[in-house]
């Protein structure tokens, strides 16, 4: 069990370090790749928490598709001159240099207080596990969610079409 907690701690530390690095990095492309790494690490954490289906979704969609979306957006928008790049770098450093310090201080503070979620060695799954699988929940209990997802996907597709429509 100590090994299991140790792996969790290493994963969480990596997750936090990469997420902070994603935010404070100067280049947006590196930030997008960092976001994909955060998604990949979150996938491992979710798998270890007993949510393999959601973990696969997270890996394929968030680490894959959203990275493509970000890279496309960055490549279509970033046209900075060398002078402007230096200015942006200075500004980013000035705004974000103390974020790691804030995060470390808050992490130390939160680790000292007794969170209501339980003790360090508390069993996480105290309630009896549900007999239903993800498929049964998704198709039988939450089928309205699926309809909503389809509507949202269509709304997103039409929204992008309208956004990119060229005026005559």
């Amino acid at each position: 069990m100590v090994d299991s907690i140790g792996i969790d701690i290493v994963l969480i530390l990596l997750l936090m370090a990469i997420s902070v690095g994603t935010v404070i990095t100067i280049r947006l492309l590196r930030a997008a790749v960092g976001l994909a790494l955060v998604s990949a690490l979150l996938t491992i954490v979710m798998y270890r928490m007993g949510a393999p289906v959601a973990a696969v979704f997270e890996l394929s969609v968030c680490a894959g598709l959203i990275l493509v979306i970000f890279i496309s957006t960055i490549s279509l928008t970033q046209r900075l001159t060398p002078d402007r790049i230096i200015h942006v770098e200075r500004e980013t450093l000035r705004r974000f240099w103390f974020l790691p310090i804030i995060i470390v201080v808050i992490a130390v503070f939160l680790s000292q207080v007794n969170l209501p979620v339980g003790d360090a060695a508390a069993p996480i799954a105290q309630a009896p596990p549900s007999p239903m699988g993800v498929r049964e929940v998704l198709w039988n209990l939450r089928h309205m969610d699926l309809i909503g997802q389809v509507i949202i996907l269509l709304a997103g597709a039409f929204g992008v079409l309208i956004l990119f429509k060229r005026g005559k």
Partner: peptide, 18 residues
Amino acid sequence: QLTGNTAMAQSFVITLIV
């Protein structure tokens, strides 16, 4: 996982991801 209902949580996560 706290409530022991991972299937429901996963369906919510899938909706959230979409």
